Measured scan of single mutants.
Amino acid sequence: ELREAFRLYDKEGNGYISTDVMREILAELDETLSSEDLDAMIDEIDADGSGTVDFEEFMGVMT
């Protein structure tokens, strides 16, 4: 189920989504998050600083 959700956002099928897209997902899930909260969450999610979120990083957030 998580893989299907990931595929919805990984429109190009390249195995990752951008941190911008991940930020939008988080904002949709919790509309009360401030910009600073979102920045901090993205920094934590994208631990390797690649600017992308792969499936493993995505799973870590969603579980």
Rank of each mutant, 00 (worst) to 15 (best):
T63V: 11
D10Y: 04
E31Y: 11
I42D: 00
A5R: 15
E12Y: 05
D10F: 06
V21F: 07
D48P: 02
D54W: 08
M41F: 08
N14R: 12
E12M: 08
T19K: 09
R23H: 01
V53M: 04
D37H: 08
M62W: 09
I45Q: 01
G49A: 08
T19N: 12
T63N: 11
D54H: 08
A40K: 13
D43V: 12
I45F: 07
A5G: 03
T63P: 06
G13F: 04
A5C: 15
D30N: 13
L26E: 00
M22W: 04
F55L: 10
A40T: 09
L29Y: 11
E56G: 09
Y16E: 03
A40C: 11
E28G: 14
I17T: 01
S34A: 07
E56C: 09
T19E: 02
G13R: 03
G13K: 04
D30S: 07
E36T: 10
Y16M: 04
A47R: 13
D39H: 05
E12R: 02
D54C: 05
T19V: 11
N14F: 10
E28F: 09
G51K: 06
E12W: 06
G51Y: 03
S50L: 07
D43E: 12
A40S: 11
A5W: 15
I42E: 01
L29V: 07
V61R: 05
I45R: 01
E4C: 15
L8T: 15
R3Q: 10
A5D: 12
I42Q: 01
M62G: 04
N14L: 13
L33Q: 03
E44H: 13
M62E: 02
E28Y: 10
R7C: 15
I25D: 00
L38P: 01
G15C: 03
T32H: 11
D43Y: 12
E1H: 14
F55C: 02
S35P: 14
M62R: 03
L38D: 00
Y16V: 05
S50T: 11
L29G: 05
R23Q: 01
E28I: 07
A27P: 01
E12T: 04
S50P: 02
A47V: 11
R7Y: 13
E44S: 13
A40Q: 10
E31I: 11
E24F: 12
E56Y: 11
E28D: 10
G15K: 02
T19S: 06
Y16W: 14
A40L: 12
S34T: 12
M22N: 00
G13S: 05
E4H: 06
F6H: 08
E1S: 15
F55D: 01
R23K: 11
E4W: 05
R23G: 01
L38E: 00
T52Q: 09
E4K: 06
I45T: 04
D37K: 09
V53D: 00
I45E: 01
E1N: 14
E12S: 05
L2W: 15
I42S: 01
E24A: 13
M62D: 02
L38K: 02
T19D: 02
G60T: 14
S18N: 06
S34H: 04
R23P: 00
E44K: 13
E57L: 09
E24W: 10
R3I: 13
E1I: 12
E28H: 14
G15D: 03
T32I: 04
D46P: 01
E36I: 08
G13A: 04
G13I: 02
A47M: 09
E44Y: 13
E28N: 14
D10W: 05
V61I: 13
L2V: 05
M62F: 12
I42M: 10
F6E: 11
F6G: 06
S50D: 07
S18G: 09
F55A: 03
I17C: 01
G13Q: 07
L33V: 04
L38A: 02
K11R: 08
N14Y: 09
G15F: 03
M59C: 09
E44V: 13
A40M: 11
I25S: 00
D39L: 07
Y16L: 05
L26Y: 02
M41Q: 04
T52R: 10
E44A: 13
N14I: 09
M59W: 05
D37M: 12
G51V: 02
E36K: 11
R3Y: 15
D20T: 13
M22Y: 02
D30I: 10
I42K: 01
E24D: 11
F58A: 02
I17N: 00
R3M: 12
E12V: 04
G13M: 06
E36F: 10
S18C: 05
A47I: 12
G49D: 07
V21S: 11
I42H: 01
L2G: 03
E1D: 15
E1Y: 14
D30M: 12
G15Q: 02
L29N: 07
Y16D: 01
D48W: 05
E57C: 09
G15T: 02
E57N: 12
E1L: 14
I42L: 10
T32K: 11
L8G: 15
L29D: 02
A40H: 14
S35K: 14
L2Q: 03
T19L: 15
L38Y: 02
L33A: 05
L8R: 15
V61K: 06
E31H: 14
D10Q: 00
E24V: 14
E44Q: 13
N14W: 06
S50Q: 05
F58S: 01
L26G: 01
M22L: 12
D48E: 07
E24R: 15
R3L: 15
A40I: 13
S35E: 15
Y16A: 04
G49M: 08
M62I: 09
R23W: 03
S50E: 04
S34Y: 03
E56I: 11
G60E: 12
M41G: 01
G60P: 04
E1R: 13
K11S: 11
L8S: 15
G49Y: 04
T19P: 05
I25G: 00
G13V: 02
K11E: 10
A40V: 09
I45H: 03
A27F: 10
A47S: 09
D10V: 03
D37N: 06
D48Q: 06
E12F: 07
E57H: 12
I25H: 01
M22P: 00
E56F: 12
A5L: 15
S50Y: 05
Y9E: 04
M41A: 06
L2K: 02
E31R: 14
R7A: 15
V21Q: 15
E36A: 12
D46A: 04
R3W: 12
G51L: 04
Y16F: 11
I42W: 02
S50V: 05
G60H: 15
I42N: 01
V21H: 11
E44C: 14
V53H: 01
R3K: 14
R3T: 09
G60L: 14
M22E: 00
A27S: 12
E28Q: 14
E31M: 11
G49S: 10
R23V: 02
M41S: 02
L8P: 09
F6I: 08
E56W: 10
I17Q: 00
S18M: 05
Y9G: 04
S50I: 04
G51A: 04
G60Q: 14
E57D: 09
D46Y: 03
K11F: 10
E36N: 09
T52A: 05
E12K: 04
S34M: 07
E24L: 14
D43H: 13
G49L: 06
T63Q: 12
K11W: 10
E56Q: 11
T32N: 10
F58W: 10
D20C: 06
S35N: 11
D48M: 06
L38W: 03
T32M: 09
L26A: 02
Y9P: 02
D10C: 12
A40F: 10
A27L: 13
Y9A: 11
S50A: 05
S50N: 10
A47G: 08
N14C: 05
M62K: 04
D46R: 04
D10M: 03
Y16K: 06
E31G: 13
E24T: 13
A5M: 15
S35R: 11
E31S: 14
D46N: 08
D54Y: 10
I17M: 03
K11H: 09
E24H: 13
E36R: 09
D39V: 06
D30E: 05
L26Q: 00
E1F: 14
E56T: 10
D39K: 08
E36G: 09
E28S: 15
N14V: 13
L33D: 01
S18R: 07
L26T: 00
E31K: 14
E1Q: 13
T63Y: 07
V21P: 00
G13Y: 02
E4G: 03
D46E: 03
S50F: 05
M59I: 12
R23D: 00
D54K: 07
M22C: 04
T52S: 07
L26F: 05
M59K: 11
D39P: 01
E4V: 06
V21G: 04
G60I: 14
I17Y: 00
T52I: 08
E57K: 14
G49K: 12
D30L: 12
D46M: 03
E31C: 09
G60A: 15
S35M: 11
E24C: 15
M62T: 04
T52V: 07
D10G: 01
G51R: 06
